Computed example of a mutant assay.
Amino acid sequence: MDFEQADAINQAIRLLSLRHRARAAALLAPLGLYPGQEALLLELARTGPMIQAQLSEALGCEPPSVTLMTRKLEASGHIRREPAPSDKRASIVELTDSGKALADKIKPLWCALAEETVSGLPAQTVAELPGILNALTGNVDTRRTRHPHGR
């Protein structure tokens, strides 16, 4: 791949990431949330209670980031953390009734953001997009074993 193509790809991904996050922030602000917190709430709504380390893995976030988010969401009454019965060093995180209600408010915003993001794209492209984006994410996942030049 030549530099011009690489630059075009990298710039497009960078700009999409920045603008998507900014748009998400604008949609979440009226709910008193910051980007990232919605993903945590939606993950718990999807899966139910889970150990904080598992939540970190599911979100693809570093544990200190999840710890900070859980502290803020716990202080606002949207989640609760309790020691895991099997390991007192681990915390189980679960939604409160307030958190469940908030997750329900996030869902239509999330749908609107996705629709806004893919506006004008053919339905076939929209259907293929999650697979493509997940493949791109996997390609740059720092937790994977790296091979020089992708080989």
Rank of each mutant, 00 (worst) to 15 (best):
A45W: 00
S76P: 00
G138S: 05
T117V: 04
A75E: 12
W110F: 14
S86R: 10
I51T: 12
C61Q: 02
R80M: 08
R46F: 04
N139R: 06
T70C: 14
H147K: 08
R46K: 13
P64L: 01
L59V: 11
F3D: 06
G60P: 07
W110K: 14
C111M: 09
L18S: 02
A127L: 15
G150Q: 02
P122F: 14
L33V: 01
P148F: 09
I79C: 08
I9T: 06
M69E: 04
A29Q: 06
P148I: 06
E94F: 03
A24E: 14
K88Y: 01
V66R: 00
S56W: 05
I9Y: 15
L129H: 07
P83I: 02
L113T: 08
L59Q: 09
K107P: 02
R143H: 14
A112R: 13
Y34K: 14
I79M: 01
Q54F: 13
R21W: 04
L16A: 01
C111I: 14
M50H: 05
I79E: 01
L55G: 10
A75K: 06
L59R: 09
D7G: 00
L42T: 11
A45V: 02
V66A: 03
I79H: 00
R81N: 08
I106N: 05
H20I: 07
N134L: 10
A114Q: 11
A103V: 02
D104S: 12
L95A: 05
A12H: 12
A114G: 11
C111L: 15
L68P: 03
I9P: 00
K88P: 12
I51P: 12
I79V: 13
C111Y: 09
V140R: 10
R151W: 10
L109P: 08
N139H: 01
L109I: 14
T145Q: 07
V126Y: 08
P130N: 07
L28M: 08
P49S: 08
N10G: 09
L40W: 15
T137F: 06
D141V: 03
L133E: 09
V118M: 02
C111N: 12
I92D: 11
P85Q: 10
R80V: 06
G48Q: 07
I51Y: 08
P63V: 05
E4Q: 07
I9K: 11
C61E: 10
V118A: 01
P64I: 04
L33I: 01
S119H: 11
E4S: 11
P130G: 09
D97S: 07
A114Y: 13
L15W: 08
V126L: 11
Q11C: 03
P63I: 01
E43R: 12
L59E: 04
L133R: 13
R146F: 04
H147I: 04
E94I: 00
Q124I: 15
A25R: 06
R89P: 06
L95I: 02
A135R: 11
I132Y: 14
L31C: 05
L31G: 01
K88A: 13
P130S: 08
P30E: 08
